[in-house]
Design a protein around this nucleic acid. Structure first.
Lengths: 68, 68
DNA sequence: ATGTGACTTTTAGTCCGTA
DNA sequence: TTACGGACTAAAAGTCACA
């Protein structure tokens, strides 16, 4: 079970469904855009509080980002 | 919304429901017992992979740990 | 059996660039 | 607009002694 890839896929799917760019999402979540890209590609291991900021920016709960 | 406290409460509740000590949970999740204690008290900001290890040791999904 | 502070080591997360 | 690398800084991971 590769949780980083699961979270990455969820973030990308939700972001694209909202017609947002990585840059816009990064701005809303107050994160670096290269870091958001890394998360979407499953290369990063984000902390709970980063997941919470991404979830808020996407209008979902943190749990939604970790759902398979 | 204090996600660290929410996760901490969930971990503690699930652990106690299983009649496990912090030490037993720490062993199963391959973490230090003082670190598990810190998470339960909402003092730590665990990463996705640490949450996944705790969830596995508790027999739930990582999303269950972040549920309010 | 758990809470806590003070640590050191490792990695998360930022900022710069190129393509 | 995104991927990716290098160099950096902030914070998480992980450990310990003691209450």
């Amino acid at each position: 079970m590769d949780w980083r890839a699961i979270v990455g896929g969820n973030v990308r799917r939700l972001r694209q469904a909202r017609q947002m760019t990585q840059e816009q999402l990064a701005f809303d979540a107050d994160l670096d855009l290269t870091y958001v890209g890394g998360i979407e590609r499953g290369k990063r291991n984000p902390s709970l509080l980063v997941l919470a900021r991404l979830a808020k920016a996407l209008g979902v709960t943190p749990a939604d980002l970790i759902r398979e």
